[in-house]
Amino acid sequence: MRVKCVLCDKIEKLEDQSPLAKKLRNRPIHTYMCESCHSRIKERTEDRKTSGNFVTYRDSSKEETW
Score class of each variant (00 low, 15 high):
residue 15 E to T: 02
residue 23 K to E: 13
residue 15 E to V: 00
residue 45 T to H: 03
residue 56 T to C: 08
residue 15 E to I: 00
residue 62 K to E: 15
residue 38 H to R: 15
residue 44 R to I: 05
residue 40 R to P: 00
residue 28 P to C: 05
residue 17 Q to V: 00
residue 39 S to P: 00
residue 43 E to V: 10
residue 46 E to D: 10
residue 4 K to R: 10
residue 24 L to V: 08
residue 30 H to E: 01
residue 44 R to T: 01
residue 57 Y to Q: 14
residue 8 C to Q: 09
residue 14 L to E: 07
residue 36 S to L: 06
residue 21 A to C: 13
residue 56 T to K: 13
residue 9 D to N: 15
residue 45 T to A: 11
residue 50 T to F: 10
residue 45 T to F: 08
residue 49 K to H: 12
residue 27 R to C: 01
residue 26 N to L: 07
residue 41 I to E: 10
residue 39 S to T: 11
residue 30 H to N: 11
residue 16 D to K: 04
residue 29 I to E: 15
residue 2 R to I: 02
residue 42 K to I: 05
residue 34 C to W: 03
residue 60 S to R: 09
residue 10 K to Y: 11
residue 50 T to V: 13
residue 42 K to V: 10
residue 20 L to C: 05
residue 55 V to D: 09
residue 38 H to I: 04
residue 24 L to E: 03
residue 19 P to F: 05
residue 14 L to V: 05
residue 48 R to N: 11
residue 46 E to W: 05
residue 38 H to Q: 11
residue 20 L to P: 02
residue 13 K to M: 06
residue 65 T to S: 06
residue 25 R to K: 14
residue 57 Y to E: 15
residue 21 A to Y: 01
residue 35 E to S: 02
residue 16 D to V: 03
residue 27 R to V: 02
residue 18 S to I: 10
residue 35 E to I: 03
residue 60 S to A: 10
residue 52 G to R: 04
residue 40 R to L: 03
residue 66 W to A: 08
residue 9 D to Y: 04
residue 34 C to I: 04
residue 63 E to F: 13
residue 6 V to E: 12
residue 44 R to D: 01
residue 26 N to G: 06
residue 41 I to K: 04
residue 30 H to C: 02
residue 51 S to A: 14
residue 6 V to D: 09
residue 24 L to P: 03
residue 27 R to D: 04
residue 38 H to D: 05
residue 48 R to S: 12
residue 27 R to A: 03
residue 24 L to Q: 08
residue 11 I to V: 15
residue 2 R to A: 02
residue 5 C to T: 04
residue 8 C to P: 07
residue 43 E to G: 14
residue 7 L to E: 13
residue 23 K to A: 14
residue 5 C to N: 05
residue 13 K to P: 00
residue 26 N to A: 08
residue 37 C to L: 02
residue 54 F to N: 09
residue 36 S to C: 02
residue 14 L to H: 08
residue 15 E to L: 05
residue 61 S to W: 09
residue 60 S to V: 14
residue 36 S to P: 00
residue 17 Q to P: 00
residue 7 L to K: 14
residue 59 D to W: 11
residue 66 W to N: 02
